[in-house]
Design a protein around this nucleic acid. Structure first.
Length: 262
DNA sequence: ACATTGACCTGAGAGC
DNA sequence: TGCTCTCAGGTCAATG
C-alpha cells in the first residue's frame, strides 16, 4: 500500500532516527528482495560508512551512503522501516537490517514479498532508467506540468493517475481519494476531461498529498470529508450519504461516490 | 505508443 | 473446528 505519502512519512522517520549514523554491517535475511546487487556488494559499500541524506521519488526511497551512492528502497505493498535497539525484538517479516554503530538497527520488513532493495549511483539516473514520471511534490510540478503529462493519454483517468510513467507516487488508494475530492468519476477517459476538471484534479492532488503527509498517513487524522476512512464495502459517502460504489477499473478496485463523481 | 490483464506473494476473513 | 476460497495492491511481462 505504501504510496507517495506513506513513503514520505518513512523518509521522515528515517531522517529522525538512523540518519547520520554509521553502518557497521548489512544483514540480508531474504536475498530474494535484492535487485541488481548482492548482499556482499551491499555490505562492502555500506560497512563503515555514514548514512548521509535521504530523498524520495514517487514510491521510491533513496538513502545516501557517504562517498558511495544510494541505497534504493521500494516498499511493495506491505513494506515498512523500523529503528530499534539491537538487543530488542526485531519486527516481523524482517528482510534486511542495517546494524548501526550506535547499538541500534534499521530494519526493512515486508510481509508480502513485493518490496525491493537495490543500489544506484544517481537518483536522477535511476528515475530515468525506470522511466518514472515527475514526483508531484517536486518544485516544478504545476498545473501546466500535469496537463503536459496527461497529454496523449486515452485511458481511464484513474489508471492514468496510477501509471508511474505519467506521475510517480499515486496508487490505488490516493488516486481514489483525489478523484473523490475532485468529483470526477474514475472511469472518465482522460481526453474527455474539461480544462476546469484538470485544474480541479491538480488542486485536489496537491491538497490530498499534503494532508495525508500532515496526518502522518493515519486516516483518522485526515480532515473531515475524506473518502479514505470510508473506503470499504457498504460504507457511505461522507458528502452525500449514499452508499459508495466499488468497481474494477483496469483490474484495480475503485471506490467512489456514484452521486457526486461524474 | 498506449492500454489492459494476469501473475507474483501471504495472511486475514468469509463461507460451508 | 477446520478446510478452501477470495481478496488486498505494488510492479512487470504478455497481449491487444
Amino acid at each position: 500500500m505504501p504510496e507517495l505519502p506513506d513513503v514520505e512519512v518513512f523518509r521522515r522517520y528515517l531522517d529522525a532516527t538512523a540518519m547520520r549514523q554509521v553502518v557497521e554491517r548489512v544483514e540480508v535475511e531474504d536475498p530474494d528482495l535484492l535487485e541488481g546487487v548482492s548482499g556482499q556488494a551491499l555490505n562492502d559499500r555500506m560497512a563503515g560508512r555514514e548514512l548521509r541524506s535521504s530523498r524520495r521519488h514517487g514510491k521510491y526511497l533513496f538513502v545516501e551512503v557517504a562517498e558511495e551512492g544510494w541505497l534504493v528502497v521500494h516498499f511493495g505493498m506491505t513494506g515498512f522501516l523500523k529503528y530499534f535497539k539491537r538487543e530488542e525484538a526485531a519486527p516481523g517479516h524482517m528482510r534486511l537490517r542495517l546494524e548501526l554503530a550506535n547499538g541500534y538497527a534499521l530494519a526493512y520488513s515486508c510481509q508480502r514479498k513485493f518490496g525491493r532493495v537495490g543500489w544506484t549511483g544517481s537518483v536522477e539516473g535511476f528515475a530515468e532508467e525506470k522511466d518514472l514520471g515527475p514526483d508531484p511534490l517536486a518544485p516544478g510540478f504545476d498545473l501546466e506540468a500535469l496537463r503536459g503529462r496527461l497529454g496523449g493519454r486515452r485511458g481511464a483517468v484513474k489508471s492514468t493517475l496510477m501509471n508511474q510513467k505519467v506521475l510517480a507516487g499515486l496508487g490505488n488508494v490516493y488516486s481514489d481519494e483525489i478523484l473523490f475530492q475532485a468529483g470526477v468519476h474514475p472511469e472518465r477517459p482522460v481526453p474527455d476531461l474539461t480544462a476546469g476538471e484538470v485544474e480541479e484534479l491538480y488542486r485536489c492532488l496537491s491538497r490530498v498529498v499534503d494532508a495525508a503527509i500532515a496526518a502522518r498517513v493515519e486516516p483518522h487524522r485526515l480532515p473531515p470529508g475524506y473518502l479514505l476512512p470510508h473506503r470499504e464495502e457498504g460504507d457511505t459517502c461522507p458528502r452525500c450519504g449514499v452508499t459508495l460504489r466499488k468497481k474494477k477499473v483496469s483490474g484495480r478496485n475503485a471506490y467512489f461516490c456514484g452521486k457526486h463523481q461524474r
